[in-house]
């Protein structure tokens, strides 16, 4: 009887969580799926129209352009956002002074703490052609003519990838460092006894031992690929929109700005499909490495 009462209380404690997830996760998912098959109007009937919404989206060149932008920018962030923090973490690990190491970690982490509005705003300002610090540096240091980074299509994606990598550098760096710290010190000791140089220790101890951390980070970052939104929402402008508008931006514009709920829902289920595909591919690839 007492266990029953006890368990009853435990289930009651779970009620808010279950309710919340049903209402704000599962129900929206189901409703989105339903809307993707409907001619969805905010008022009146919503007749089912089969795959018409999916066809509309599939024939929309803007959608495919958004997919291409997502893959280009997201792919760039995935690769550069993996390599850059790895290099920085390895470099931090070679630092002897604890104070310097700690300070560097603290400083590198700051941009990750700030919002995309702040970071994007600062980037736009720093990159502006007439008063920006970057162009000032390019002019004074290399005698280059000012570049309008935020308005030139050729630079648009580079700027997005660069700023995203810069912002999350400290975060990913800590994840890598956590992996490095977890490596057993006896491995390094044994390597040193055998006369291994620092480079050899890095090559034959640190990197192989870090493999599982690398896989986790790669997988986590892959899942983030289709989530890019805040950054683009802040940093886009009409001059570069066709180069940087990503899939979530497409869904947002279709659904909220144009109030075409049906096609927007269909587009988001295409994204679900892409996410699943990509996850499977990355899982395969990381498992393949293991053999």
């Amino acid at each position: 009887m007492r266990t029953l009462k006890r368990q009853g209380m435990l289930y009651i404690m779970m009620v808010p969580v279950v309710l919340y997830f049903v209402l704000f996760a599962y129900y929206p998912l189901a409703r989105g799926l339903q809307a993707s098959f409907q001619d969805y109007k905010l008022m009146g009937d919503r007749p089912y129209i089969g795959f018409d919404n999916y066809e509309t989206v599939a024939h929309d060149p803007t959608f495919w352009n958004a997919l291409w932008n997502t893959l280009a920018i997201g792919g760039g962030i995935l690769v550069a956002g993996f390599l850059a923090p790895l290099i920085v973490a390895l470099s931090l690990n070679e630092v002897w002074s604890r104070g310097f190491k700690k300070t560097a970690q603290l400083v590198l982490y700051v941009p990750h703490l700030l919002s995309w509005v702040v970071i994007g705003g600062i980037c736009i300002f720093l990159l502006s052609p007439d008063t920006g610090l970057v162009n000032l540096l390019l002019a004074k240091g290399f005698g280059l003519a000012p570049i309008n980074f935020m308005a030139e299509e050729g630079w648009a994606r580079v700027v997005m990838v660069g700023s995203a990598v810069w912002k999350d550098m400290g975060y990913n760096c800590i994840l890598f460092l956590a992996g490095i710290v977890a490596i057993s010190p006896s491995l390094f000791e044994a390597a040193r006894m055998d006369g291994a140089t620092r480079w050899q220790q890095l090559r034959y101890v640190t990197l192989p031992q870090l493999l599982s951390t690398m896989k986790v980070i790669l997988l986590l970052n892959t899942l983030g690929l289709f989530r890019i939104f805040d950054q683009i929402f802040v940093m886009r402008n009409p001059a570069i929109a066709s180069k940087v508008d990503v899939l979530m931006m497409y869904t947002f514009q279709k659904g909220i700005m144009e109030i075409r709920i049906g096609p927007a829902a269909a587009a988001s289920f295409f994204v679900v499909l892409f996410t699943l595909l990509l996850t499977v591919v990355v899982r395969r690839m990381t498992r393949f490495d293991e053999v």
Partner: peptide, 29 residues
């Protein structure tokens, strides 16, 4: 606790729902 496994999967599954998939329906809700 009976049903704990179900609860765990119920919670884990919510972490796999892409934000994009529920962006518009969340607005409707």
């Amino acid at each position: 606790l009976p049903g704990k496994k179900i609860m765990v999967s119920f919670i884990l599954l919510t972490m796999m729902i892409p934000q994009d998939a529920i962006l518009i329906p969340l607005y409707l809700v």
